[in-house]
Design a protein around this nucleic acid. Sequence first.
RNA 1: GGCGGAGUAGCCAAGUGGUAAGGCAGGGCUCUGCAAAAGCCCCAUUCGUCGGUUCGAUUCCGACCUCCGCCUCCA
Length: 471
Amino acid sequence: MALQLFNTLTRKVERFIPLDPAGRHVGMYCCGPTVHDFAHIGNFRTFVFTDLLRRYLEFRGLDVLHVMNITDVEDKIIKRVHQQQTTLKDYTGKYEAEFLKDFDALQCKRPHILPHATEHIPEIIALIEKLLARGIAYQAADGSVYFSIEKYRGCGCKYGQLVNLNFDGMRVGDRVASDEYEKESVADFALWKQRVPEDGTVFWRSPWGEGRPGWHIECSAMSIKHLGESFDLHLGGEDLMFPHHEDEIAQSEGALNLPAGRRFVEHWMHGSHLLVEGKKMSKSLGNFFTLRDLLAKGFSGREIRYLLLTAHYRAQFNFTLDGLAAARVALARIDECVGKLRELAGAASMPPGPELPLQFTKAMDDDLNVSAAWGAVFDWVTETNKKLAAGQLKGPQAAAALEAWKRVDEVFGLGSPPSDDVPPEVLALVEERQAARKAKDFKRSDVVRDQLKALGWVVEDTAKGPRVKRI
RNA sequence: GGCGGAGUAGCCAAGUGGUAAGGCAGGGCUCUGCAAAAGCCCCAUUCGUCGGUUCGAUUCCGACCUCCGCCUCCA
């Protein structure tokens, strides 16, 4: 079977075929964070999804160039920079660093390129100039430059590729109507915003005067620069479909005037939102968790990653702490099994057992069906545990099983659980308990076990002696 | 109002025109001094509701109900 992925352009699951004639290189652009505040785990759901896709493409032998932008200029940022009397760079630098820290904690692979909007002003200006030259953009009386959807359509281009648009049926927000009245048409959007006093020190020179880029143009400029005029994959959260991605297509295809049959992006994919108590997690509703909130509750980045990876990317997913607790237990089951294999395998080295990777690939080829993939993993865990319990696994077989898991985990990216550094006082208690057990003083040994529990450790008596684990 | 998505056991969640994967929780047993871990067994005659097509539908079609998202900054 071949890899199939859902494409928002066609609303169908399609065979994924790279543009590269050799079928090897894949260009992948992900809409990254706007660094105006701490990101919440709803935001990170999308990044974990893009990480999963990248890793799976690599697992399938493709050579992925992964680009994720950092939006470091935007209305909210400008407002806060002004309020806090700081500079754009200081303000966004802080949140970018925090973002990347969380990104790493969730064990996402760093994109190969992390372009910043503010570092691509010349490319943005050049793109707008192309649109003006083609007559698709215009400078309005307020000095800002807008994209004309009417002119764009007049060029034979289609506006409304990702969503069905029916402007008559749309509820045009008050904000759009009152705020940007200089536009020729309500649906037109800003490419370059004329500088206003509230912008403070945040502005760049342009052929149209001082100002700053509109929201959508940065992604067009940066993706074209780093991935070319036509590339394979563009990803983001479902809320970006409209207007952001629709406008990106319009700007890019409008400016590039691509030959017939070619398009800006071949394959668009959108991750569904994370919900909290059945509602969208968002800053404005205040019902969000940041990664640091969850870390403070004692959960690890890898447990959160696991939870986010158990839901299909196109399914809305209701985030709850109960769900996270259940995920912790499920993950521990895998860890327990893999840990035993690791112990048995020792230094033995074997090629991977074929069954798990085969079932895994079958599941993931179907538009990243992670539920089926986890089903394969847990079937494998049960099988492996059975063999372990029966003493049927020797070093080489354990090594082969372990290698199979490693292959799969290159995609899931869970890695090993952090190894426990057992404090001396805990070790002392373990020894004391063991001595009591030898002396058949079980009352005493149970008291010590309770003491260990109070310290946050469980002790397991195995054939090879006692073993402690952090609770 | 327009557009899109979803309703499967206590919870999470796959799936198929031929009779329901997996995880968590729960119950019983084995192992254990007792536990833990692991193993074995049990846990949806049923897939929002009502119709239709069919030999047969949870899976296809229609209507309805409910929920969510987008249409406005937003992953």
